[in-house]
Amino acid sequence: MNQHHNDEFDDKKLSDLYRQGATEKPSDNISHKILSAASEQAKLNRSGPNLIEYLINMITSSRSLAFAAVMVIGISIILQIQFDQPEQIVPQSISDSIPAATMKPDSTEILAEPENFSEPMDSASDLEKSISKSLSPAKPVTKADEKRRNESDRKAQSEAKRRMAEENQLMRQRSQEKKEKRMMLAPENAFSPAPVISPLTSTLNCDELTNRACLSSAKCTLSFHDNNLTCQSTVNHCEKGFVQMDMYKEQCEQKTGCQYITGHCNCDADESCSCINDELPSCEPIKRAE
């Protein structure tokens, strides 16, 4: 059917007539031009493409190599600057006498208390300026001038050392205070549900603990007395070993005759706590009906 259908397009007489008249050919001139161009291209195809491909590959790979090199050098420079900065601030002669903690504070302390280091750094910067000023080369001077200048340099250096030592001492004190505070806050910040009793807290009496520390203490109980929050030693077996937090509800109720009293307190960073309806989470003996 399809063959028959296509036969209608094969008109033999018409085709024969057309082919007898189809004698035109491209001129020799144009054929020569085309074949010459083809010959030229064939030569290029034999040798050129490999070279071109090689060059393209070279350019592509060298471009990416150059980019990688720039990135590596850039990052190296940034890191180098960051690591070298503290040592560059203070002249070598002074840095030798400064404790390492001042020059390169450990990273955890930087994260926890950045304000601690801003002052020493500023001081160091000021110090550097003063030292640079005093050490800066002067115009040609007499021996007496030189002697005076050396003397003032020595004074400036010793003053700088003294100031740096003071700053360092102050900074260490602050750091110690912050560490102590962090230890007191540890139960709230810790992810572990187990009560974390810091060595410092464990040695303190209940009435010496902050409200927040009292809540997390297993030895002490925070409660309301005369509209005030007071921290007292545990008074019964229910309170003993109980940490006043919701997450310890089950621990409370596992003890025979004890019930958990729900309460919600918010303790600020400054250790003061406020409790909703003056109710504190607590573990109390079940009151039997009289």
């Binding site: 083809a38 010959s39 064939a42 195809n45 034999r46 040798s47």
Partner: peptide, 10 residues
């Protein structure tokens, strides 16, 4: 021809 053989193009 693309491999450089001119006679193929002819």
């Amino acid at each position: 021809y693309s491999d450089g053989k001119q006679s193929a193009f002819d």
